[in-house]
Design a protein around this nucleic acid. Structure first.
Lengths: 175, 175
DNA sequence: CTTGAAACGCGCTATCT
DNA sequence: AGATAGCGCGTTTCAAG
C-alpha cells in the first residue's frame, strides 16, 4: 500500500563483512534509527516527508534508513493491527500447559493453525509451555482446552483470563 | 474475462443481541472482508491491485473496503513489526504479580512508560496482574522486578522466561 | 460491483555536495 | 553520511455501465 515496488535497481550495496556464521544479534543503530523505528512501530502510514520533519531529515534520507533497516531485518514486516473485539474475539486468555515430556511440544505446535492462538512459547518454571489465545467466548476456549487435554503427556493446564488490557504493543527500541 | 471465479460472499454476520449497553461490539464482516483483513494483518505493504487479484476484486473495490474497515475501527493501525533480538531485547518474560489490593494496579500502570514493558493485563486466578516484558538481559529484568517490589501491597511475583517463541502474531479474523 | 481515465501525491532514483 | 530535482508508479477520485 505504501511501499511502491519498483523494478530492481543496480544499486551498489555494501557487502557486510560477517566473519563466520550469520550473527543473529543486535544491529548497529544510532539515535535517529531508534526514533525512526519507534515512529514506524506506532504508525507506519506516515509519509517519508512527514517522518523527515519529525527527524529533521529529508525524505530520501529517511527512505534510505528505512530501506536499510528492512534489509537488515530490524523491520520484519508492516502489518495492519486489528481490533480483537470487533473481530468477535473479546476473550483473551493465557494458558499454562504443564507437561512431563518434551514430545508434547511438537503436538502443541499444531495449534498454530488455529486463528484463536496468537502466541506459543516454551518457558521456564513449573509449566513448560505458555499460550496466548483469543476466543469468542468461554465455550470456544473450553473446546481449545479440550483439544490440549486430548494430547498425552501433560499434567494439566492453568488458564488466566484477562479482565482488562491496559497495554499491548510490539517490541520497541530502547530509550 | 467475466468468468464466475468469484467466490460467494455471504454476509454471515453475528447479529449479536446486546441487551444492555456496551456499544463496542463485533462489526459486520463478510467473507471478503475477513480475507482482506487476514491479508493486511500479515502484510500491509501490498498494493490494492495485488490484493484485488487475491480477492477477485478491482483495486477501487478493495480500497473502498479497506477505507470502511479503518473507519469502523476494525483496522486500528498499520505498524512496523520489529525484530526484538536485533533491538537488543533477546529476553522475553511473563511476570505474574500477586497483589492484595487493587490499588496496586494503578501503580503498575506507570510501567507502561518503560519500553521494556509490552503488555499489562489484569487477570483472573491467583495472580492479579500479568506483564509481558522484553529486556536486554537478566539484570535488566531484575531491575524491573525490583521496581515492582518497591510497590506496597503485593505478595510476590513469579516470572516465566521464554526459551523459544514458536508463534507470535496479532488478532486475526476467524476462519 | 465493474472498467477506464484522469489528477495528484509520493515512493524511489539519480546526481551533487 | 545528507540535500535537491525529477521520473513514474500507485493511490484516489470520478464517470458510465
Amino acid at each position: 500500500m505504501t511501499d511502491n515496488a519498483r523494478p530492481p535497481s543496480s544499486r551498489t550495496s555494501k557487502a557486510l563483512k560477517t566473519p563466520g556464521a550469520q550473527p543473529v544479534v543486535a544491529a548497529v543503530l544510532d539515535d535517529t534509527d531508534r526514533k525512526l523505528l519507534a515512529l514506524l512501530a506506532e504508525d507506519a502510514t506516515r509519509t517519508y516527508a512527514e517522518l523527515g520533519k519529525l527527524l529533521f531529515l529529508s525524505a530520501p534520507a529517511v527512505h534510505e534508513r528505512a530501506r536499510r533497516l528492512k534489509k537488515e531485518g530490524v523491520i520484519k514486516a508492516t502489518v495492519a493491527t486489528l481490533d480483537a473485539a470487533r473481530l468477535n474475539r473479546p476473550l483473551l486468555a493465557f494458558v499454562h500447559v504443564d507437561t512431563t515430556s518434551w514430545a508434547v511440544t511438537r503436538q502443541l505446535l499444531a495449534l498454530k493453525e488455529l486463528s484463536d492462538v496468537e502466541e506459543i512459547h516454551t518457558v521456564t518454571g513449573e509449566s513448560a509451555m505458555l499460550l496466548k489465545v483469543r476466543t469468542r467466548d468461554t465455550q470456544t476456549l473450553e473446546q481449545l482446552l479440550a483439544r490440549i487435554h486430548a494430547i498425552e503427556g501433560f499434567t494439566g493446564t492453568r488458564s488466566y483470563i484477562a479482565l482488562t488490557t491496559y497495554l499491548e504493543r510490539g517490541p520497541s527500541p530502547e530509550l
